[in-house]
Structures are given as C-alpha cells and as structure tokens.
Write a protein that binds this DNA or RNA. Structure first.
Lengths: 135, 135
DNA sequence: CTTGACTCCGTAGTTGACTACGGAAGTAAT
DNA sequence: ATTACTTCCGTAGTCAACTACGGAGTCAAG
C-alpha cells in the first residue's frame, strides 16, 4: 500500500503473480491494473497489492468470469457491495449451468455413439457418421 | 448427385441449409464444401447433396467438433472407416468430459458462494470477494 | 431494356485473451 | 564504461468461426 513497498520490476511482478509481462501490460491497458508512475524517469515499480490484484483476476477467471466481469468485481473489491457481487456471480452461475447442460448433452450422445462404433466391428455402416447424416 | 439436380442459387442453398451465404463461402474456402463450376459464365448452382453436407457440418458442430475435425469426419463420410471416426469421437468425448469437469467445479463453487452471499445480508464482508482474495 | 435484386470474390473486421515484435531507453554487473 | 539484460511502448499477430463490405458481373421481372 505504501510506496516504499513498491519494489518489484515488472518482470519480478509477473513471476510473483504467475503471469507474463505482456499479460500485465494487457491488464493495465484494459483498466484492470493501475500503471504506477515512473519517478524521475526510472522504470515502474510494483508491490504486493498489485500481485494480489492479479491473483484476484486469475481466481475470478477460474470461476469463468470474463475480464470485463472481473473489472466489475474489482470495483466491488472492498466487500461492501455483496449484493451486487452476488448478482454478477448469479449471472455467471446461470451461464455455467447452461454450458454444463450443453456439454452434458454432447457427452451423452458422444459416449453412446463411441460405444455403438466399438460394437460395430466389421459391419458396413458407421453409427457416428449415420447419426450426423440424419442430423 | 447428378448435375441436373443442381438448381439452387447460393441464396436458396443457404436458406435450405439454415446458414448465411457468407458461411457457405467460408466453408468452401476451408475446403469443407466444393465450389461448383460456373458453366458458361453463369452463376454457380447447388443441389441437395450440398445442403446435406452443410447439415452434416452443423450436426457435428452441435457435438462439439471443430470445423477442422468436421473436415476429417467428412473424409470418412462413406461410413467405411468407422474405427477412425470413432477415434475422433473418442478424442472429442475426452475433451467434452474435461470441460464438463471444469464447469462442474465452477458450478459447485459459484452456487455455494451465491448462497453464502444471500445469507450475508447486512454483514460487513462479502463471501465471494473474500474467496477471490484468498487466492 | 431497364431496374432492382442477387451473385461473385477478395479482403478486412469481430470477439476474447492474450502473445509476439522491435527499437529505444533504463539498469545491473563486471 | 562496456556489455548484456530489462523495461518501455505501441502496434500487429494468433485462434475460431464467422460477419461485413464493396465494386463488378449476372439474372429475372416488367
């Protein structure tokens, strides 16, 4: 938080946060990360708050949030807007569930067809190709 | 199959197959669809085999296959290479299952957090934000 | 035979989350 | 002070599957 603790070069920052330097610059450009000043023409320095912020972003991504959504979440980072945060999470959850349903359908069809194909040894037609044809 | 049945303009073809004209051209460019000749400088004509082919592509996409994979499948379209087709499907299935596992994990975490946030009414911190902060 | 719609074709833009490149300037080590 | 590595910064490229654009040619209706 205090400037004295801003000791990391961007390379060290990236390493500490587990991302590439380019990713950091990309996040800065997207407004997810502040770009610290270059005091007296020196290179920029980063601190542990910055590392925590990137880790927050990565944690949110693992839950399926897009970077734009993460931007919204970062605005609620002080924890005093739980309702709004929960709303974002509920939207994400709905999307996750819809994708889950899609994938479950695919899984059902594919596993059935793979089974049928394995039982098909030596016969003329292919259950998978047939299924795709009868659309 | 016979040229006499190639009566559709690209617009009618698109409508019959349920895709945009641009999509047809895109598929042609990708090698998923043949581009019929322009006899005597006339416009190209398409037939029901073309429509069936596009529907095959769309059916495969609904199972999660990429267009490149669909290209492989189309080469096996005669149904005499069931083993190879099944192999492609098995790879797809593995990928679908891995994505399914990812989404299931997200679903678990998100639904838990949404619940906790709803139970949090009026208290100081936000379970969702907290969870993102603790890595 | 003109008008308006459609086709042709190549190129460029879209979305999301980066990744790569390249020249100039800052920095660390010897 | 020289060398070698970073950093800085902007622009461009990547992937997938399209979607959009624009000018020239073709076609069908009236």
């Amino acid at each position: 938080m205090d400037a004295a603790s801003e000791t990391l070069t961007i390379g060290a920052f990236g390493k500490a946060a587990g991302v590439n330097v380019e990713t950091i610059r990309f996040y800065q450009h997207k407004g997810l990360l502040l770009t610290p000043e270059r005091s007296y023409g020196r290179i920029r320095r980063y601190g542990s708050a910055d590392v925590a912020r990137v880790k927050f972003v990565k944690a949110a991504q693992r839950l399926g949030f897009s970077l734009d959504e993460v931007g919204q979440l970062l605005k609620l980072e002080d924890g005093t807007h739980c309702g709004e945060a929960a709303e974002l999470a509920a939207l994400r959850l709905a999307d996750v569930r819809s994708k889950l349903a899609d994938l479950a359908r695919m899984e059902t069809v594919l596993s059935t067809l793979v089974c049928q194909c394995q039982a098909q040894q030596g016969r003329v037609s292919c259950p998978l190709i047939d299924a795709l044809h009868e659309n």
